[in-house]
Computed example of a mutant assay.
Amino acid sequence: MTGRGPRVLLVDDELLVCAHLRVILESAADITVVDEAYDGAAAVEAVIRHRPDVVLMDLRMPGVDGLTATARIAALPDPPVVVALTTFDADQYVVRALRAGAAGFLVKSTPPKDLINLVRVAADGHTVLSPVATRRLLAEAGERGGGRDPRVALVAGLTGRETQVLACLGAGLSNAQIGRRLHLTEATVKGYVSRVLVKLRCANRTQAGLLAVEAGVAAS
């Protein structure tokens, strides 16, 4: 996203939820809500039609649900950032959404000011992911038989510096923050992040951060 504020697509089968989110987001002068979609199939079509920067995606919808829609959107050329919407942060659908390509998740009860700021953060390419909530989600997924991501085994193949960068991704740090923590330039950090994503077979830094948390290497 360059030269303008984020363009957002709202996806929820409850029209009142979409209306509520629209009022909040459009109270910010730099955010534009380009459309609303009320099921996953319509969401994919709206992404292709409007090319939004951010999609706020409800996970539990009749017909094509948010998980399926997220995976379809992630497979598009130059996809937008998808942020999963959930009513409570222990929703096990969230882990599946993150593995499907979502860049993070938000609880629908997020305060308006925080919601606006987090949409901006997502549009800028950063993760919208709470390490504490993610650890709890992964623990509960394991207890319920959700299983570990098989890519966790690939973490052992990273170099020491790559593991440090992965740990920072697990903490939700930006490239600039990683650079300050590890005393590296942003360009160097960007190179490390790219190599980590390739080695771990991750589509984005959020998936890598999720693996960091699951592998127990996320920085505090």
Rank of each mutant, 00 (worst) to 15 (best):
Q92L: 15
E186M: 07
L197G: 01
V152Y: 01
P52C: 06
D53T: 09
R144C: 04
P52Y: 07
R4G: 15
Q92M: 14
P77T: 08
L115F: 08
R49Q: 13
D149L: 08
T87V: 15
L118R: 14
M61H: 09
V82Y: 05
T68P: 00
T68Q: 13
P80S: 11
A103K: 09
G104M: 07
D91I: 12
R181C: 02
L169D: 01
L56F: 08
E143M: 11
L56V: 10
V196W: 01
L106Q: 04
V165W: 00
A176T: 13
G216F: 11
A133L: 13
Y192Q: 09
T32G: 01
A102N: 10
G209V: 03
V81M: 04
V17G: 00
V83L: 10
Q177N: 09
R60Y: 07
V8S: 07
R60F: 02
G172M: 06
D78A: 15
R120P: 04
N204S: 08
R181M: 04
T188A: 14
T185P: 04
L173I: 05
G157A: 11
V119A: 04
R72N: 09
E45Y: 04
L200I: 12
I178R: 00
R60E: 12
S174H: 03
V54L: 09
G104W: 00
R180V: 12
M1A: 13
M61N: 09
S130R: 11
A103Y: 10
T127F: 00
V47A: 02
D149Y: 11
L154I: 08
Y38V: 08
A71L: 09
A218V: 10
R135H: 14
A28E: 12
G160F: 10
L137K: 07
A176E: 12
R60G: 01
G101V: 04
A37E: 00
V95I: 15
R4Y: 14
T185D: 14
G191P: 03
V189W: 03
V33H: 04
R7F: 06
V83F: 06
L173W: 03
C18I: 06
L154R: 15
V47S: 03
L129V: 11
D89L: 08
D124Q: 15
G179M: 03
A97C: 11
I48F: 00
R180P: 00
K108G: 08
